[in-house]
């Protein structure tokens, strides 16, 4: 069986590292794994996305429409955007902190709040205020590790593997903070 994880957010939010950690965790758990990292501009502020697929044997790194199991969205509009890639009833883990895109900022478009709220009718939406939780822990940068914690609860990969993987990917002086962040996400 293949597990398809999507990651959507805004350029600069650290999606590349998040994708990398999920891939490494899946590999350590014994799965074959492929991912797409952000393809395109390195600039901040635009929509960015990636995905991870793991299972016994993975050929394509791409996830087709309505094939995703879990969507991690670091911003609500991006949750809406990538929800089309999810299976009906799939899981959305979303950070509720909104970031206005240019059309919204320039008042050419409304931020689609109602459509975002309606995602709850079709999917299992888990909202986790990772920015605020991360600030409580001391650094906003650990918000993505909180999101990975929330993801871990939806998967069958042992916690030990996740913690080991996270430790390998963060600076030594922030190890404890990152483990705390993971647990905040995992314990919900």
């Amino acid at each position: 069986m293949t597990t398809n994880i999507l990651i959507g957010g805004v350029g600069g939010q650290g999606l590349v590292l998040m994708t990398n950690i999920i891939c490494q965790g899946a590999m350590k758990a014994g799965y074959d794994v492929k991912s797409n990292d952000v393809v395109g501009l390195s600039q901040r502020g635009g929509k960015v996305w990636g995905n991870v697929r793991f299972g016994e044997k993975i050929y394509s790194p791409n996830i087709s429409a309505k094939q995703g199991d879990v969507l991690i969205a670091t911003e609500p509009l991006e949750a809406l955007r990538w929800s089309a890639s999810l299976k009906d009833g799939g899981v959305i883990i979303v950070n509720p902190k909104t970031m206005y895109s240019t059309p919204v900022q320039q008042e050419k478009a409304e931020y689609p709040k109602e459509e975002i709220d309606a995602l709850k009718d079709k999917y299992k939406v888990i909202e986790i205020d990772a920015n605020e939780e991360a600030k409580k822990l001391g650094k906003i940068q650990v918000s993505n590790v909180i999101m990975i914690g929330a993801l871990a609860r939806e998967l069958e990969i042992p916690i030990k593997i996740w913690e080991e993987t996270i430790l390998e990917n963060v600076p030594p002086k922030f190890k404890e903070m990152n483990i705390s962040a993971f647990r905040v996400g995992y314990n919900g």
Partner: peptide, 11 residues
Amino acid sequence: TTTDTVERPPL
């Protein structure tokens, strides 16, 4: 693979 919604161009 995406829902048609408000765009988010880079800035």
